[in-house]
Amino acid sequence: MITEFKKIQLIGAYLAKEYAPDLLRLLYLYKDISASEAASRLSLHIRTVQEFLEALHAVGIVQKEEVFEKKRPYFRYTLQQEKIVCEMDIAALADTKPGESDNELVIRERKNANVRFTTARNNLYFSSVSIWIGEGRERSEKKVSLTSAQGKFLFNLPFPDAKFATIEEIMQKAGIPEEHRSEIIDIADLLIEHGVIEAMKSVSG
């Protein structure tokens, strides 16, 4: 079973290729096969087939063996498993699982933060936040569209000279339901990383 996200990503990308079923069929029918043989059989470029087989080898679906029958050594590939099973835990992708926020952290807007908030018309929240990244000619704008919960959260973020507040306190003030906590933490982390939000550990802890 493939459980590692990178491997699932890799196998997914190659299985999406048009020629994938044909190559897998060959691997199933042949005891072992080289990239050159498979390429000529399916009228594909050898490089294309090589990359596909190497990807299957990287995730452990095929085994490869170096042989020296011809002038130069080459690899022959053998199918190791007849079924491909993947299992992915999406929650593992999130640094912070829902409900697991850092409650000791207090935050507010950083002084002179290079940022522009865009207010949603007729609503009391932000629709996007634009962050300036880099210096001089390398400077670029990163615009992040916000969910309404994130927009309300940032709308209620303490000002640069205001008292720090916990994420919990800001969410309460903004009237954001608990179910949005993980997306709030995600945007807070992003803005802390880009120096828009100033964060520190709460003294009261």
Binding site: R116, F117, L124, F155, N156
Partner: peptide, 12 residues
């Protein structure tokens, strides 16, 4: 008085 406290955001 205080320095560098301006922000363009509205304040609830």
């Amino acid at each position: 008085p205080a320095e560098n406290t301006y922000t363009d955001r509205p304040r609830p």
